[in-house]
Amino acid sequence: MDMLFTDDQLALAETVRDYLAGTHGPEVLRRLDVDGNRDPAIWQGLVDMGLTGLLIPEDQGGLGMGLADAALIAVECGRACLAEPLVETAFVAVPWLVAQGRTSELAAILAGTTKPELSHAINPWVADGTGAALTSVDPLRNLTAAPAERSDDPLLLNLGALMSAAQLVGLADAMLAQAVEYAKIRTQFGQPIGAFQGLKHQLASCAVAIEFAKPVLWRAAQALADGLDSAAVHVSHAKVAATDAAQLTSETAIQVHGAMGYTYEVDLHFWMKRSWALSGAWGSRAFHLRRVDAAVLGGSHPVGPEHTFA
């Protein structure tokens, strides 16, 4: 029993974080927004880092890592508000294809030339698909309808929900950081607004929500990696906790920014809108709450102090 990431796992996530912070800052989001949403150089950079192969088995040329590693990196993609469909390609489609035994499709994904379009009954559209374009509130999402492939496999749903939850946690972290930074520099009544207790306490409540969503996410990632029967309950729990943390933090962050937060000019809106999009993607809050509810109140999932991990 050891609920801790190894130093190697944390170091890899930090490398991705630093890379994205250096190459994919808010100015890049603004540029993409006026300039066609995608830049092949960004995708190529991710491919060159080996991230498309993170979950591809080593004998297929990938890094052969696990879902917990991927969840850690998906958090970083959320933090950077990454628009490229790395998470859906490498952390949702790849493990699903591997589980299906469709290994022949992996080489093209590893090379970055294919981004599989997978959808599920619960998630009828995909980002960066080839179908008819839909307009999302998220300006960088490139949402499309009627994807080529559709499955009702619960594993696909669980992967999609888990990785959405991971991105939501990263988005929430980033929105909290932006609000805190703004609260330190904006002054009113002769002091930084961050010295006002009314704002401090709201921001502290966001920190609480995020802090307690994270271990739920790690638990869910490991449960899915271990193939537990109860993985669906843990994934749904993570999606609800991450959605709630992101929602609270986005509403708090805009409030802290005042009218600035209501503009298209302040970067916060990119993160806020991504969080709205991912909150509903791969199963809404209501869908996931019902799954937990059915298992816990329905009696199929054991409840009580001795059942933390069983």
């Binding site: 805190v180 961050g194 010295a195 207790q197 401090k200 306490h201 921001l203 502290a204």
Partner: peptide
């Protein structure tokens, strides 16, 4: 919990200690 939220805001988030709190 108000005091805990002060501590969270000031020591974890790094918000300034000026004014009330």
């Amino acid at each position: 919990n108000e005091v805990q939220r002060n501590i969270t805001a000031e020591r974890l988030l790094g918000l300034p200690r000026v004014g009330a709190g």
